[in-house]
Each structure stands twice: as structure tokens, then as C-alpha cells.
Design a protein around this nucleic acid. Structure first.
Lengths: 201, 201
DNA sequence: CCTCAAACTTGCGTGCACGCAAGTTTGCGC
DNA sequence: GCGCAAACTTGCGTGCACGCAAGTTTGAGG
């Protein structure tokens, strides 16, 4: 649906990208991120190490992509799906919270892995940046706001999500980093201050 | 004023940090970033290469820090300096715009350097992240908002500044990357959508 | 003044990111 | 079908970031 009429070239690229992130996540889960070399990921995906680096610019990025893949398009889609009568703030907040309320069984252990590794935590929170562009498009489409405003609002939403995620993943003083508290609730608190801005367009 | 009664330890650390960023910027200007090795920066600052990496985690970060140093504390200070009657939005926006309206002669050629190098551009826009913490403190202090709200607002302001900077530094189709247009005006446009959120606290 | 633990520096080793300059594949236009 | 330009892959080389485990410095308490 996103790739209407894609050439062989594009389909192959997506396949390679998916093979890489799938391999990265699977191997990281199997043997732990510390025992995983970039060459292993490349080999498991059937490409050269150099090619791996054409797709991801860090090992953590590849592993995390195994979990966050497509989240960007889903958030944008969820915003667009809300009826035009819905206030923008509700549309955006519902969409964002909804996409993060999916302890989808298959992602459970992945999140645990991320929570226990500082480098992965950082990569994970950074990954929300990828929703900015599609979200800006969706906001602009829906509200008719000018491009700069849409970009700023999208970037602010992403920033709020990062704040919530960092809070969620913050190591407690006991050293444990088990996602405590409800992520949806944290997201709602973090996004609340942006309601006024979102509805002002 | 920031370092009230600092021990020798802390003063030495600051001195080292400043020596490193000053050396990085100076050398980058002299011979261009491509002809500048990390070892050169370390040597010029009188520390080992390994120590250099204890202070900066990328060459670009060190160079850019030569220009953005202390901007974080100045922004926070500028916010705090505005009278308590001023609406928060005015205080924050004036402070941010004010800090970026300083083509301080000495920074002129530094900005030109940054504008012409993609890696430096990225590092420069990333560097605004450093204002988040102090700005959040200032916002919390001033408005009495809860910690999460203050963090989100500060992060949103930083995000807006990044959008403006990226726009400002965007390579034109002619390939030239000369900061075209007025940065203050771009910042005002980027920050405008956040007014409602800032004044809602 | 002396001691000692915590903080900081440093050398070493390892894995990594990425520019560059070939090879190889894709798919458009004839 | 054919040829060719653009896109993608790959090997190589270089510089770099960072963990680790010594040394070294700092400064608080006795």
C-alpha cells in the first residue's frame, strides 16, 4: 500500500533492509548485543558488511529497527484515519498513544533487550525522529497549516514522545530498568502540554 | 558565576574542555575540517587522544562546540532575566532569538565553515539539544509547571530551533549553502506555533 | 603532614563507519 | 532484443570511538 507499483530495484532494497533488521534483532536476542558483530548481521542477511553500512549507520540502529520498523508510516496513517471533525490534538495524541500500546508479544522480549542496554535505549529513543517527516505531512494535509508550522508541531510531538520514553526507560536507583509505570499514561502526560499548540492551527 | 566556588578539579576540567574546543575550531578554520585529525586537536590542547574522547565523542562535536559553547547557559539565563510579568512565550522566544542574533564577527567565519560542511551542519543542529535541560529548569522555575511539562516545552523549543536552523542551512538547488534569509525571522516563524503551549501553563 | 579513596588521564586493543573506486545489476529507450 | 546510464554492491583503506586496566592527581579527614 505504501509501495504502489514499485520497481524491482526498490523491492529488493526493502527486502535487504528488512533482512538486515530482522537478522540484527534475532541475533541480538539469541546471543546478546555484546556478542554480535556487524559482520554476523551482514552474513545472516546475505550481504557484504559494507552494504550493511549502506543501510544502517550503527549496529544499534539496525537492532532497534527490528522493532520500530514501519512505526513511522503507521503513526502518520493513524492520524490521517481520524475523521476530519476530530480536533487535531485528539487525532495526533490518539494516534501516537495507540501505536505505543502494543505489547505485541513478539516485541516483548525485544523491549526487554532494549531496556537493559544503554546504547540500545539511546538508539530506541532516537528512532522516534523517523516519525517527524510523515507526521508533518499528515498534519499539514489535515490542518492546512503552512509547512514550517507542520514541521515544528511534528518535531514537538516527537520530542514529547522522547521525553516520555526516556522517563519510562530511566534506570531506577535500584539499577533495574524495567519499564515501570504505564507508557500510555506517560505519553499522555508528555503530550498534554502540546494540545494547545496543536489545536491552535 | 556558574562555577561558584569550584574546586581545582572542576576548573581543570573546564579548562581542558575549552582548550579542546578552541583548538578544534581554530585548526578547522586554518586547514579545513578534512585536513584535521583528532590527534592534532588533542596535541594542540595538550592532552592525549584518548582524553580528547572523554570530552567529545566526535570530531564535529568538538569543532562545533567552539562556537556554541555556553549558549545553553546564556539562553537559560536570558529566560530567567525576563521579568516575571512577561508571558512565558515572550520570555522564551525573546531569549532564544536574542541568543541567535549575534553575528559576533568572531563567529562569522566559523558559521561559514559549518555551513559548507554537511557533517558540521548536522553537528551544529544537534548541538541545540544542550539547551533542553537548562531551559527546562528555567521554565519550571518561572512557571511552576510540573517537571514533565517543563521538559516537554523545553524539548519542543529546541525542536523548533532545529527546524529553523535546518531551513536556514539548507543547500539551495544551486548548491550554495550560504545562510540565506534572516535567521531571527526563521526562528520567529518556527517558534510561533509553540506560543499557545507556552502560555497555557 | 600523611593517607587514601575517588576522580581523572592515558595506552592499548578492537570493532566500526564511511570515502573511494572498481564491479555488477536494473530497466528505460530505441 | 540491445545498449547504456544510473543505481546498487563490494573490497579496501583510513581514521575514529570507546572498553578496559593500569598510572596519576586531587582533596577531604585524621
Amino acid at each position: 500500500m505504501t509501495t504502489e507499483r514499485a520497481g524491482l530495484r526498490e523491492r529488493k532494497k526493502q527486502a535487504t533492509r528488512e533482512a538486515l533488521r530482522e537478522a540484527a534483532l534475532r541475533l541480538a536476542l539469541e546471543r546478546g548485543p555484546e556478542n554480535l558483530r556487524v559482520d554476523d548481521i551482514a552474513e545472516a542477511a546475505g550481504v557484504s558488511p559494507r552494504t550493511y553500512n549502506n543501510y544502517f549507520s550503527s549496529r544499534e540502529q539496525a537492532i532497534v529497527a527490528g522493532i520500530t520498523a514501519q512505526r513511522e508510516s503507521r503513526v502518520a496513517g493513524a492520524v490521517a484515519a481520524r475523521s476530519a471533525q476530530t480536533p487535531l490534538s485528539d487525532a495526533v495524541i490518539d494516534a501516537v498513544v495507540g501505536q505505543h500500546t502494543e505489547p505485541a508479544e513478539s516485541e516483548r522480549d525485544g523491549m526487554l533487550l532494549i531496556a537493559t542496554n544503554p546504547a540500545l535505549r539511546a538508539a530506541y529513543t532516537d528512532a522516534v525522529t523517523s516519525i517527524e517527516q510523515p507526521l508533518a505531512d499528515a498534519i499539514g494535509e489535515r490542518s492546512g497549516a503552512d509547512a514550517m508550522t507542520a514541521r515544528v508541531l511534528a518535531a514537538s510531538v516527537a520530542a514529547a514522545v522522547r521525553v516520555a520514553l526516556r522517563e519510562w526507560l530511566q534506570p531506577t536507583d535500584s539499577g533495574l530498568v524495567v519499564p515501570a509505570g504505564s507508557l500510555p499514561d506517560l505519553l499522555l502526560s508528555a503530550l498534554a502540554p502540546l494540545r494547545a499548540a496543536l489545536d491552535a492551527v
